[in-house]
Design a protein around this nucleic acid. Sequence first.
DNA 1: GCTGACATGTAATTCGTTACATGATTAC
DNA 2: GTAATCATGTAACGAATTACATGTCAGC
Lengths: 187, 187
Amino acid sequence: MSLSYGLLGLINNFPLSGYDLKKIFDDSIRFFWVAKMSQIYRELKSLEENGDIISKIEPGRRGPVRRVYSITKKGKANLQKWLINPPEDLNEDFRNVFLIRLFISSEIGFEIPLRQIEQRLTAYKKELDELITVEAKLEEYIALSGKEENMPFWKIVLGRGKHVTEANIRWAEESIHYLKKINREKK
Amino acid sequence: MSLSYGLLGLINNFPLSGYDLKKIFDDSIRFFWVAKMSQIYRELKSLEENGDIISKIEPGRRGPVRRVYSITKKGKANLQKWLINPPEDLNEDFRNVFLIRLFISSEIGFEIPLRQIEQRLTAYKKELDELITVEAKLEEYIALSGKEENMPFWKIVLGRGKHVTEANIRWAEESIHYLKKINREKK
DNA sequence: GCTGACATGTAATTCGTTACATGATTAC
DNA sequence: GTAATCATGTAACGAATTACATGTCAGC
């Protein structure tokens, strides 16, 4: 559901192919939404069946022919309706595999989880760097689409990524110290 | 996959029924993993078929009979194996419905998203309060199970919730100011 | 007698991942 | 020639949600 509206929202800026959409997801949206190629194609098919988008075949820019999707009036109306009415229950950030692992980790002692948190810390720092490069990519898309009205929202979403990643870094550092302290006290 | 190991990790502390497990999830784990009753029952069934847990029927404490699950030797070994080998690719906090909505919100202007962020801010503040009450609930479970070795990990996971929620609060406040500023400048 | 917490499940559907399958064009 | 990127899809499977279905017991 959310994925199909996400695709619709991007096609609303300018016509895109499945492949284009996958690139946008991988370049930027991946920080808060992951989508596989095969799922994108499936959702595009069902969006077209529902009359929210229409496709036409275009010669490939470099490569085989492309199927490019544009939004319809109906699609625009459906998109607006979805955006205006948020679901009451919008769980954010649920299903975190790393945290559920940690929660039950006493079974394997302190050493291994400590290493695992250290690895996460490295990953968080890398993620923070990547978030900065995303900003540049989003500006490219603005140039392409000419839709400057997107910028404030994209900046806000990026800002969230930064705040949360910084919080994760602080938390990981704190937790590493805590586990090391416990380890020392045991000996 | 992660859910079934989560259940296994909890049953590892002391025998539990499906209903018990659901309560633990709703009381505490819900901050990083959401599970429906029907899914829990299904996973328990497949864990038992796989020989990781065994069930026996007990008279209900207050109510109908309960099916209570205990971990087996095989289950304990599988749990340890899973905990020791983390997946290379553990995406945390992906698929955030609120963020994907915001990302494509330019379609409906500034006012509505502004209200929606304000609502989130309220929710984040409430969540921070709830995280404090969770601490007390976890201490109850410690008392029940006598498994004090869980405490450091539970504290760490809770700490993560606090850090991230505080980051969300700061982000929401910042974003509200930003959108209000844009609105003023437009007029 | 009703409400709320206790308690367990099945069935249908939707959403997400993995594996499979195919082929064109460009740059080295 | 060969690797990388471009490009589109199907099939099978697994995970998660929603709807359905049933019933007990305690306290008011």
